[in-house]
Simulated assay, not measured.
Amino acid sequence: MNISGNTIFIPGGTSGLGLGLALRLHAAGNTVIIAGRRAELLESITRDHPGIESIALDTTDPAAVVRVSREVQERWPATNVLITMAGIMQVEDVTSAGFLATAEATVVTNVLGPIRLIAAFSEFLAGQPDATIMTVSSGLASVPLPITPTYNATKAAIHSFSESLRVQLADTTVRVIELVPPAVQTTLMGQQDDPGAMPLEEYLDETMALLEAQPDAREILVERVKYLRNATVEGRYDDVLAVLSGAAH
């Protein structure tokens, strides 16, 4: 993926990593369209950041995904990058059946949302001379945080889906890049002030540097996420899981 000169659609670009990445990519010389559920938030962001475009979208609504994807392709026909950023992360207590509603919402948002978006964009992007689909998994796809079991599972699913997607699109103009964040200081799990999480601006600095230095990258792995990502291959899985299990108490 070239670092500039793209037209980029980012569902889930209204806060945290999504908004941060949207602003960095816009500053790097890209046209950026963000999407989210709250029209007032979209209006606020576009007002405060001239040049950022926006469109309302609830990625849990399959009909809306189809409708809005078509609108993006019509209004911004040069769109050549899709970043499937929207996601949720919530604590679940699996000792009670009450966790099921949270689990189902997490699967719909974190797995079906990105897959529906990719389905709506894959043929369109394959018609562009140079295109990218960027999926967003997590270091927790490699070693789970036990208090968020369904979140971990959805990110493992996204990792696996990205691998298959890349193979199937290998003969097209579409690259597939998997963004693999560690814990970052955002509101995703109320960790915006957590000293153990990576500062957002530091994460964005390193991510943008990696994107620029590695235009053909398959995965974007900042140094902090390698503690999780490489745990199995380095023989540290059980130790890392024990650390994350301790964080659950």
Rank of each mutant, 00 (worst) to 15 (best):
H26Q: 15
A35S: 15
L19F: 02
T14D: 10
A22T: 01
I45S: 00
L23V: 03
A35Y: 11
R37C: 12
E43P: 02
G20L: 03
A35D: 08
L42V: 04
G16R: 05
L42S: 03
L23W: 01
G36S: 05
G18H: 12
V32S: 08
S15K: 15
L17K: 04
S44V: 05
I34T: 04
L17E: 07
L21I: 00
T46Y: 02
R47P: 00
I33H: 03
L19T: 07
R37V: 13
S15W: 05
T31H: 15
N30M: 06
L42K: 11
L42C: 07
L19N: 06
T14C: 07
L17W: 05
I34Y: 07
N30C: 10
I33P: 02
V32N: 10
L21P: 01
T31F: 09
L19W: 01
R47T: 15
H26F: 13
G16L: 09
A35R: 11
T14M: 14
G18F: 10
H26L: 14
L42D: 07
T46C: 11
L42T: 04
A27I: 02
R24V: 00
T14P: 01
V32R: 01
A27C: 03
N30H: 12
A28G: 05
L23F: 00
I33A: 04
L42Y: 03
I45Y: 01
A27M: 02
I34V: 11
R24P: 00
T46S: 07
A39L: 15
E43K: 15
G16Q: 10
R47K: 15
R38I: 05
G29W: 11
I34Q: 00
N30V: 09
I34K: 04
E43T: 13
I33Q: 05
L21R: 01
R47W: 04
L17P: 06
L42H: 08
G20D: 04
A28W: 09
R47M: 10
A28R: 12
G20A: 06
R37K: 12
G29E: 08
G16V: 12
I34L: 08
H26D: 12
R37M: 02
L21K: 02
L23D: 00
G16N: 06
N30F: 11
L23H: 00
S44F: 08
E40F: 07
T31G: 10
R37P: 13
E40L: 06
A28M: 08
T31R: 14
G29K: 12
V32K: 10
A27D: 12
A35Q: 07
E40C: 00
A22M: 02
G18V: 01
G36I: 13
G18R: 09
E40M: 03
T31P: 13
L21M: 07
A39K: 15
G16H: 08
L42E: 08
A35T: 01
G29S: 12
I34R: 09
G36D: 09
E43F: 05
I33G: 02
T46L: 06
G18I: 05
L41G: 04
